[in-house]
């Protein structure tokens, strides 16, 4: 009997794939030139399911556009103006997240996305050219891309680290609970003492 129950239990646990049980949604967003990139997932390491709707809002809550996550929980959106972008995603079952990309992260207002000096193909062709021909804008973009490539994994690690439950938080929480109920017990005990 016991083994049958355990067997059913195990079989069901294997069958049910779940994403809604993880409790907090985490993510980050950054800009690479005019391209806004980001990643959304759950605090237990699971990534947002592919095709999750990601909506982008301006600072005044007007909707700028939307995109969907790819296989690795990543999304990408091309900004059209250097304003603060609010990125919202709802992963269902009460799991939602809002990420904010400050306007400063985007290029200066003077250069528009269409006038941006480089696109991906020209970068690759530049590698074969002599580097000396790069103008200042092109150099800036190459540097910012290289830096963001290095920084992205660090950013991810930092967010994961921040979201880990720490022992001192756990102990602090228990301490608060015992403190609150200890106070309540003391107050009622005092009240009962005064009564007779």
């Amino acid at each position: 009997m016991k083994s049958t129950v355990m067997g059913i239990f195990l079989a069901m646990s294997l069958l049910v794939t779940t994403h809604a049980v993880a409790h907090s949604v985490i993510g980050f967003v950054y800009a690479e030139g005019w391209e806004i990139e980001g990643e959304i997932g759950f605090s237990d390491g699971q990534l947002a399911p592919p095709g999750t709707l990601v909506e982008i809002f301006g600072p005044d809550s007007t909707k700028l556009g939307e995109t969907r996550t790819k296989t690795n929980g990543a999304f990408h959106y091309t900004a059209t103006s250097a304003i603060t972008h609010h990125v919202k995603a709802n992963l269902g079952s009460g799991h939602a997240i809002e990420l904010i990309l400050e306007a400063e992260a985007l290029p200066n207002v003077s250069s528009s996305p269409n006038g941006s000096a480089l696109n991906a193909t020209s970068i690759t062709s530049l590698h074969t050219d002599s580097v000396g021909n790069l103008n200042e804008d092109q150099l800036k973009q190459l540097i910012s891309e290289a830096v963001s490539r290095q920084v992205t994994p660090l950013r991810r690690d930092l967010i994961n680290y921040q979201n880990q439950a720490k022992w001192h938080d756990v102990l602090g929480g228990i301490g608060y609970i015992l403190g609150i109920f200890g106070l309540a017990a003391w107050l009622t005990a005092r009240k009962q003492k005064e009564k007779p």
Partner: peptide, 21 residues
């Protein structure tokens, strides 16, 4: 108080189930 603390901790006890926990 004890059961309040139990609930507080319980959410941190992750049990692996299939690919998730």
């Amino acid at each position: 108080g004890v059961f309040s603390a139990t609930f507080f901790i319980a959410s941190l006890v992750h049990i692996p189930v299939g690919p998730s926990s």
